[in-house]
Design a protein around this nucleic acid. Structure first.
Lengths: 196, 196, 196, 196
DNA sequence: GATGAATGAGTATTCATTCAT
DNA sequence: GATGAATGAATACTCATTCAT
């Protein structure tokens, strides 16, 4: 049980790296097992299909990210910073630029798409909770919180993809977010320094 | 040359329909030629590759949509309605729900993605022009127009896909758009009746 | 040893049911152990190979059928009825039509074939004995008994398979059997009521 | 068109030989194309699937055999000899013992089974016609001709398979056939010299 | 302009069997 | 007696592309 689980985790890590590097569709099972140094049968002993592997890879990734997000929420930080921090938790680090690029690369649409959907389901409630706290504290002022949060998530993920973005994009983004959440101008300005 | 062009247009139509119905990746060249009743060689006489076919299919689609958009711009309508009308031109009709569904279906991510990118390039300048007119007329009030327009386009396309959306989604969308463009509350309220 | 034997009998029953339902070749060892709720290793502890399992399944089946045939022979019945009764013992009951159908289904040729060969070896001597009694009693009249019996067995099994057969098939069968055994016309007529 | 058809016939011949030599299930597509010296794609250009290849192989075989049978029927021969000749047409020559053996070999059940079914459908009407002629000529005397012919076919094919058969088997077979067709004793005795 | 036969690299998945624990 | 992780050969089928005619 121990042994089996451990091996499976390793496999997930390897698959994760490969899917993200070369794209899900461009990664064959043959390549995965070669990289992992295991037999075909071993792969199919652990995963029912390649698609299920993708599913599990994404879940694993999101679990890790969610854990990080929880840490951010528990930290001693102003609400707006927390909001941005949580969103950032669900984006690959700056240090892992390769991954960001990869997720948005044309050969990775499948994975990107699946990730995006699952990610929104997880992140929206967390951020919504933060926004509510912000409202209580008088920092934000708005209704229909989950819908607004959804919009912010969409913008963050679609706007800042690999294609590249300008200073103006960031500036407008900050502006829009402030008005979406009903925050005083400048509340989210710190984002400019983070991304810019 | 005439005849050849005509034949090619037919092929594009057929490919368009098939790509959208079953997805780009799920449509094989064999299936296309069978549907079209032509030989393999003939297909490759007209198109250098399957990917180029997709490219041309999308261009053909966008050309038709852009033509429609130009008509909307030339029409006698208030600016806000024009803005929405142009955006709608680039979305498949309500009457063609199948197509909307199809474009967002999981097996169609490739085509959806490619379309989305090209579409934004074309639509942003058109809408930007409208927004400028709106500013001159005192209806809108904002700077960094293209960036703001880009945001609106992203939201329109990501928010209202096949998954389904709520009344509240629409309400918030209207609200956000108004603040993005610096319009008086209610300016874009007519959208609610259009989509709701 | 007790326990082991019991477990093995259960496994044979399960394998029997699965082989007959889905065909030998379409039943994987994985499916058998899942159904039985045991581990791979346990299966291979009891059986040297999948083919040996089939062999044992067939033997088990034939043992049960032979036992039934012996009971028929010991019963108080006219010889012709006994002959037919013994043959019927080796055919799945009418109540188990599924099994008859299954044994003749295209996916079950392997099992059907193996069963048929082994079955003939067992049944021919039993029926031959009956025919000899019949000759002594003046009901039948023929030489080369085992060869004639073999023919009857072949006909019974090939003629009345799942494909379906007509009234005329039965009628001719009765006629042919009577002449093969040198019986008076009508001796075997009761078959018509049994099968017809 | 010419060229394509010719190539396909060659492929059928090769597949026929291989299926019969090593069994349908033991012959992989890879082996066929290697033997034929063609590419995988070429094989699948000509045949939709391996199973369809088998189907076509059998049809080709039966076509050839039926042609031979027609020749026998047109020949100048006594009816009983024709009956036996036609049946023999549908059995591989003595010279091709390998094939007979092969068709009955355990690894060839699938092909044997499929062949047998299709063969009966074709041969029964032909022989029935001959039997009718024999009845007119007073050589045979029976009703329910197709049913009786079916029985003869079954016996001929099941009795004389690779397992081996004895002189007595043949003798009884002759006897049974005569009584099935209502022929005078000795009418079919020539069979003994043919097979024995 | 058009045909269609030929290509061959690529792919996911199955499955009976082994063996260290 | 029992487990279950690991094996790896085997298999049928897909598909975009080429090119001689």
């Amino acid at each position: 049980m121990r042994k089996g689980e451990k091996r499976k985790q390793e496999l997930l890590q390897i698959a994760y790296r490969m899917f993200i590097t070369r794209g899900y569709e461009n990664t064959s099972v043959d390549e995965i097992i070669e990289e992992a140094g295991i037999a075909k049968g071993t792969y199919y002993y652990h995963f029912p299909s390649k698609e299920q592997t993708l599913e599990q890879v994404i879940d694993m990734m999101l679990d890790a990210q969610e854990e990080h997000a929880r840490a951010v929420m528990a930290a001693d930080m102003p609400i707006p910073q927390k909001v941005v921090g949580v969103i950032a938790s669900f984006r690959p680090d700056a240090s892992e630029t390769t991954i960001t690029d990869a997720l948005h690369a044309p050969e990775n649409i499948v994975m990107h798409d699946k990730t995006e959907r699952k990610l929104r389901e997880r992140i929206v409630p967390i951020i919504s909770e933060l926004v509510e706290q912000g409202i209580e504290e008088g920092i934000f002022n708005c209704k229909d919180i989950p819908e607004r949060v959804k919009i912010i998530i969409i913008l963050a993920s679609e706007l800042f993809d690999a294609e590249g973005f300008t200073q103006t994009d960031v500036k407008v983004f900050v502006d829009v977010i402030e008005s979406i959440l009903g925050a005083k101008p400048g509340t989210m300005a710190f984002i400019t320094q983070l991304i810019g």
